[in-house]
Nucleic acid binder design. Structure first.
Length: 292
DNA sequence: CTCCAGGATAAAC
DNA sequence: GTTTATCATGGA
């Protein structure tokens, strides 16, 4: 389905779009991003990307983006993955009964195309943590070292800001041992100069990109897959954490296996749609109390 | 009090 | 190459 938009006063309206096509709550709260929070008004979220604040509201059959057309075309259209046909993706994934149920639990999830550096730092911060705490750590990091953009909002810190920062300052985001990872990775990325680049990684493909990302401090198998998927480098990544491992073991593999096994299994089974499948399964597992 | 959280790392085997 | 203890913090 092609998403239509119209320009209104100070906003863009995504028309004929119900929550089964794009559910902002499920999209913002499924653990792929950490910079969106509910506004005081109902069904609204505010968030920051590319140094811009945006307010999004969802109604029965349309979504309102409070931005001008220029920012919509340059930033948000790509950010919200609006040119990707999710009907086709879901159709292709519904082939088995398990995926069908997983998709039905959150059909309106979209995978955001987030900024590369922010995604890398965010998922370095995620290791052995939980979504609520990661969100708090990232918010504190932005307040400490990000550019203020008005109304108490802050842009995500630049590579320079994080690499030049004193480790004591970074520690104030309370991410614990991960603060050292953030600092060293920011330094490594600064030294990589232009080669830490999304377009280059898209060109390089999954395997090579993953190898390179895993040289960063705090980036192992799972975090690398998250960066590749959630920064929009490749949808063939299948980030495998404890939740995905549990649900894959219970519903598909039917025995206890290793994380590496599940990761490869998912990539083989779902191919270029592995990343989408993973998100539906992750949401399904977390909301249906999949036992260990 | 202990256990665990969208894991990664270095050290030991 | 494959296991294991450790890492900082906060919530249950």
């Amino acid at each position: 389905m092609k998403i239509k938009y119209v320009i209104s006063d100070d906003c863009i309206i995504l028309e004929n779009l119900n929550p089964d096509d794009f559910n902002i709550k499920d999209t913002f709260e499924c653990g792929q991003c950490f910079r969106w929070e509910k506004t005081d008004r109902q069904d609204g979220y505010s968030g920051i990307a590319h140094g811009k604040k945006l307010i999004v509201q969802q109604n029965e059959d349309y979504i309102t983006l409070h931005c001008n057309e220029k920012d919509f075309l340059h930033i948000w259209q790509y950010y919200f993955d609006l040119d990707t046909d999710y009907d086709e993706i879901k159709e292709r994934l519904r082939k088995d009964d398990i995926m069908n149920k997983a998709i039905c639990s959150a059909p309106g999830i979209r995978i955001l195309n987030q900024e590369l550096f922010e995604t890398a730092v965010s998922f370095i911060t995620s290791s052995n943590s939980n979504i609520k705490r990661i969100t708090r750590n990232i918010k504190d990091l932005c307040t400490l070292l990000g550019q203020p953009i008005g109304d108490g909002y802050y842009a995500f810190p630049t590579v320079e800001a994080l690499s030049n920062a004193d480790i004591c300052t970074i520690n104030q985001c309370r991410a614990g041992f991960r603060c050292d990872y953030i600092h060293s990775s920011a330094n490594m990325i600064k030294n990589m100069s232009d080669s830490f680049n999304k377009e280059r990684y898209i060109e390089m493909g999954y395997e090579e990109t993953k190898k390179e990302l895993m040289r960063l401090k705090g980036v192992g198998n799972k975090v690398a897959d998250c960066i590749i998927l959630f920064a929009g480098i490749s949808s063939s990544a299948f980030p495998t954490d404890v939740w995905v491992k549990r649900i894959m073991q219970n519903l598909y593999i039917k025995k206890e296996v290793t994380l590496d096994y599940v990761s490869k299994y998912g990539r083989d089974k779902f191919g270029d749609l592995a990343g989408y499948a993973q998100q539906y399964l992750f949401h399904y597992a977390r909301n249906n109390a999949v036992h260990k």
